[in-house]
Design a protein around this nucleic acid. Structure first.
Lengths: 143, 143
DNA sequence: GTGCGTGCAAACGGTTTGCATGCCC
DNA sequence: GGGCATGCAAACCGTTTGCACGCAC
């Protein structure tokens, strides 16, 4: 794992009086390595097939910590399963979801972000985070 | 209930070979009357206190039908409980959610809608529906 | 050594479903 | 009268949690 990231993780854990266990390290390392939009069970299975035994409960507990401290972003796509993506140091983006094949495509639009900020300012609403998801049919599935 | 809406409901049911039961009528009437962002249990409880006995299962089954045919919109706010709002004939809007008090504020921005459409055209993505939710602290809760 | 972290299995909670009965068409 | 709809309770499923043991610090 990148030393800078690991140090940041260590610093966060220390500050919160949490311990750097091999399970926590394994979950973070795995999330950094495969930068998709991943369900907890996927993470659990992949760790298991790597011979790194981390229980499902610990995966859930760890991604919650990683989300809380900004290493991961949690996505809710409305199908009852949460996805996580690694986000530290990466630019913000939103998601298009194909309702046929489930593919998730990222998109960026700074104009929308600005309009969004303006709405919040106008309405005196202190924006903390947002979800902007476009559901439809991707190019491939249209054929 | 407005005759026009009822007729539309009847037409949909007929086309789908479904029956107009008093439970289905009660759920739709209730959704029209109280135009909030409502959980199934809320609908269930309110019907019950009106003396209209509709089982929880039937509420779930009915809102699913009403959503499918465009009478309701389903909102997923990431807390594991779905909300429904009446939408037939009303303008599209999106939502700001206060993370302190849970209040849901509606907002409209046609510029964002246009940009959104443009992104989809550019990426050859056939947009079906979208979610745009702003999470933050409302004016009241900032004090 | 202390006390947080883990694994396990059970609990949770919103939602869905199988089945016998009810009622719209 | 036929067959979809309902109510009930059980099942479902992703996620959370209580508890005894383990391990980082």
């Amino acid at each position: 794992m990148d030393k800078k990231i690991l140090n940041k993780f260590k610093a966060v854990l220390k500050k919160e009086q949490l311990k750097l266990t091999k399970q926590r390290h394994a979950v973070l390392a795995n999330m950094i390595k495969s930068k998709g939009h991943r369900e907890c069970d996927e993470i659990y299975d992949q760790l298991k097939s790597n011979g790194e035994n981390v229980s499902r409960a610990t995966v859930y507990r760890t991604v919650a910590i990683l989300e809380k401290y900004g290493f991961l972003r949690k996505l809710e796509l409305g199908d009852g399963r949460a996805r996580y993506e690694y986000k530290l140091g990466l630019d913000h983006h939103d998601h298009m979801v194909c309702i046929e094949c489930g593919q998730i495509i990222e998109f960026v639009n700074s104009e929308i972000e600005l309009l969004q900020d303006k709405i919040c300012i106008d309405m005196n609403f202190k924006l903390v985070r947002h979800i902007h998801q476009l559901f439809g049919v991707c190019e491939i599935c249209q054929n």
